[in-house]
């Protein structure tokens, strides 16, 4: 009412617009239910070494809210044991024998594995395939498609969470008996 009064008092006639602005920050989020440690449940032997084992998928909500502005993100993986020689080498993550391995050939002391990510997606669209995350990616190998990186695609009820899983890969020979361990970091950053 005061506003009306003042404007009227000063003879200000005609329309008046007031602009109220606020800002929303761009966000890149990586939220995951992934446990801090996992174990492949099947002990490896000669009978199953040529088979792979995939862990159960865990929710991994990785998204940005900057769709339309061309901001996409990339998922990186870095293991404490990895060969980064892509593409001429193996570009390979691996677990390593926890015992005394001095002098042993690589094939005797390594268990190869890889990390895969299935991007989040709208439930009205087709579920995207799992993509391999490379420790030493070439080009856009680890880039999450923009269509699957916006938060609307990722958050229920309209979207479905992304998922991540680990795959113990097949081997041509059985490594030394024992326990194999490794650590992998999964990070998200803008492209």
């Amino acid at each position: 009412m005061m506003l009306f009064f003042c404007q009227y008092a000063y003879g200000n006639i005609g329309g008046k617009s007031y602009i109220v602005s606020s800002s929303v920050e761009s966000v890149i989020e990586l939220r995951t239910n992934l446990p801090t440690s996992i174990s492949f449940s099947t002990a490896i032997n000669e009978g199953n070494r040529s088979e792979s084992e995939t862990t159960t998928s865990s929710d991994m909500n990785a998204y940005t809210n900057t769709e339309g502005l061309g901001i996409k993100f990339v998922l990186g993986v870095s293991g404490n044991h990895a060969d980064k020689q892509h593409p001429t080498g193996s570009d390979q993550l691996y677990l390593i024998h926890t015992g005394d391995i001095a002098g042993q050939p690589d094939s005797n002391i390594r268990v190869p594995y890889k990390v895969q990510y299935r991007p989040c997606y709208l439930e009205t669209t087709t579920e995207p395939a799992y993509m391999d995350l490379h420790p030493d990616p070439t080009g856009t190998e680890n880039d999450v498609p923009l269509a699957n990186s916006f938060e609307d695609d990722c958050l229920p009820p309209n979207g479905t969470f992304g998922a991540i899983r680990f795959v113990r890969e097949s081997m041509t020979s059985l490594p030394l008996a024992g326990t194999y361990q490794g650590t992998v970091n999964i990070d998200i950053s803008p492209q």
Binding site: S26, E29, L30, T32, L69, V111, T183, I186
Partner: peptide, 27 residues
């Protein structure tokens, strides 16, 4: 008129994030 402005590029609330997982297998 309420205008919402989205700032892009420089002002990320979280421009990187990391998850660490330990993995074990048995032979």
């Amino acid at each position: 008129i309420a205008a919402a402005t989205v700032t892009a590029g420089a002002a990320f609330a979280a421009d990187t994030d990391t998850v660490t997982t330990a993995i074990t297998a048995t032979v």
